[in-house]
Simulated assay, not measured.
Amino acid sequence: MDDLTAVRELEADVPPLTDDARSAARVRLQHAIVQEGRSGALSRRLMLRVAVAGTAAAAVAGGVVVAARRDGDTGAPRMTTLNAAQLLHKAADRSRADSADTPIPRNDQYLYTKTYITRTYVKDGRVKTWTDESWMSVDGSKPSRREEFGKVHNDPPLTKHEVRWPPTEYAKLAKWPTDPDKLLKWLRMEQKSTPQADMQAFMNACMLMQGPRVMPPGLEAATFEAVAKLPDIRLDYHEVDALGRRGIALSYPETSFTFVFDPKTYAYLGLRLKGSSAKKVHGEWRQVAWYHEMRGLEELGVVDRIGQRP
């Protein structure tokens, strides 16, 4: 059986992916190839597994919202005077000023998250909500328990050929550059600035911010400043985050993800996703029921075992 046949069989009963999910999967695969290339060749079968696993994760986790900062500084200037780049620099300053309450995780621990999800359907305005709890092994060496839309998934440990991109290990994240220019090169995967490379950089920034992970000092701020250097970023002043607070969205053309910020404090509120459900019609998958989805990370902590809460 050749690889194309394997892919077709794997996708036979899977809804078609969005362009954003495919882009995210492609990034994961590229990173896996680079990592494996340092130690030896990666088999075609394992490459396929990494690609498919990355695609599924991107499709599921694309709308995850990370922890919001505490509100404050209500006397800040009104956001209507700022453009997209200025907003991101304000958000970076706010990020540096905030203190991190989450302890630094060890590789043998778990990242605990409690997430509030709200999905609003475009056609009729219906709203569905979920509150999910998950325990992710920091380095992937232990089983993880992940709850998605109320359903519990018990994930096995990663194999030596499987990678997470971006990483969740604090030691690996600490090696990421906090200089915005250098970080932007990483987010572009060392490519020159083109519309496609810039879109990939924006997607990588979304994947980094979606969590769950504990950011080393300065990395979150540098991410905002790196995105500020992209030429086509734009603002939308009519967003609402998952917990009902008003927010301003920042997006990149032809992507369905948006960053959401507080309009007064510049605090980062999370990510918003436009997506759709899919169903089989006469043997073919069709996109139906478009929706907007937000995820509010109510709690992020570090624990020693599955089932434990901070």
Rank of each mutant, 00 (worst) to 15 (best):
T74P: 04
V52D: 01
R45E: 03
V34P: 01
V50G: 01
R69C: 10
G54F: 11
R38I: 04
V50S: 06
R49H: 02
A68T: 05
S39D: 00
R69A: 11
R70F: 03
G63L: 00
A76I: 00
G72D: 15
D71Q: 13
M47Q: 14
R70T: 11
S39A: 00
A61D: 02
V64F: 14
A61L: 08
A57G: 04
M47G: 07
T80P: 00
S43Y: 09
L48W: 09
G37Q: 01
L46K: 14
S39V: 10
G54E: 10
G72T: 12
A76D: 13
G40K: 08
G72E: 00
G72M: 13
A41F: 00
A53M: 13
R78P: 04
G62L: 01
V66P: 10
T74D: 12
A41H: 03
L42S: 06
L48Y: 06
A59N: 15
R49Y: 08
A57E: 14
E36G: 11
A67R: 15
S43K: 00
V65D: 14
A61H: 11
Q35F: 01
R78A: 15
L42G: 12
A59C: 03
A57D: 12
L46A: 08
L46V: 12
A61P: 03
V66W: 15
L42N: 12
P77N: 01
V50N: 15
V65G: 12
R69P: 05
A59W: 12
R45S: 06
M79Y: 15
R44A: 10
M79P: 07
G75V: 07
S39W: 02
G75N: 13
V34T: 05
A53Q: 15
T74C: 00
A41Q: 02
V64D: 03
V52W: 10
R38D: 00
R70I: 02
G63D: 13
L42I: 11
G63Q: 11
S43C: 00
R45F: 02
G75Y: 11
R78H: 13
G40L: 02
R49T: 05
G62S: 12
L46C: 08
S39N: 04
A51G: 15
T80Q: 07
A68Y: 03
D71M: 01
R44I: 06
G37K: 09
T55G: 10
A56C: 08
V60M: 10
A61V: 00
R69D: 05
